[in-house]
Write a protein that binds this DNA or RNA. Sequence first.
DNA 1: CAGGTC
DNA 2: GCTGG
Length: 322
Amino acid sequence: CSPTPMKLRDAPSACPSLWRCLPCPLAELRLDLVLSSGQSFRWWESSPGAWTGVLGDRVWTLRQDGDRLWYTVYGEEDEHKKEEERDGCPARAAKLDVAETDRILRDYFQLDVGLSALYRAWAAADPLFRKVANDFPGVRVLRQDPVECLFSFICTSNNHISRITAMIERLCQAFGRRLCCLDSRPFHAFPPLSALTGADAEARLRALGFGYRAKFVSGSARAIAEGLGTEGLCQLRTAPYAEARRVLCALPGVGAKVADCVCLLSLDKAEAVPVDTHVWHIARQRYGVALGGKSLTPRAYQEIGDFFRGLWGPRAGWAQAV
DNA sequence: CAGGTC
DNA sequence: GCTGG
């Protein structure tokens, strides 16, 4: 950690100049529900109501009060060194200006998508949604980085959230750049693709407790590096849902469910409905979807997605998140 | 058995 | 079939 250790920032009141806010009603965003729901595994409730995590290679703390979303961004530990190196325009060069941080946050939470109107439409079409929606307002889909999203969700197969979170933390610590320390706790960026393509990547991941997923992570990193590249992966944002899904499913460790998670949570495919065992049971028990088999076959997977798309419309994946 | 995949 | 809550 740096010689002048930074402290975690809880609330704007202690040092208002380090915080900014965006207008954002609770009906449009519930930070606690969104950041703890298993969409992203990199946010941590650092104190009651305050969420700290890594986004866009920066460490942030977020908080809501009333109709505002507050945020603060921490500087990098070697930021002064960087600034000294740039003798032309110091302070400015290494930092993000406020317009840029506002934009990053608005993009990540997709705040231009009006959630209240969508809730009304889903509630009108579905009585079961209406019952749940009252208890869970402000649940929206994050717009995550495609590389982070892909490799995170490869880790979710046949796994549980507490272990997934720990695995991803160790992945970032071992392969990602250290950004800063807060209260002596180091924060690391999610590693770029190039960090996962080394010959020893699989063995290192196994040592980190990835089990058989170690081969999937290193194998998918290689496949992308030798194929479409990080840029090509990101360009799937403008491709049709079916094509994005087909490309992703060709990667080792990526089946229909993981592909749909990546499509929905990072590639702008709002119609993608990831069907896990939980959703499968709900489709049968609560919605009475008639499916014969005992296991979630590819056929059953497709039918459940189609059922919810028919019920909720083109943003079915967003409704399912609620 | 866990937010499946080979 | 990796691993742990």
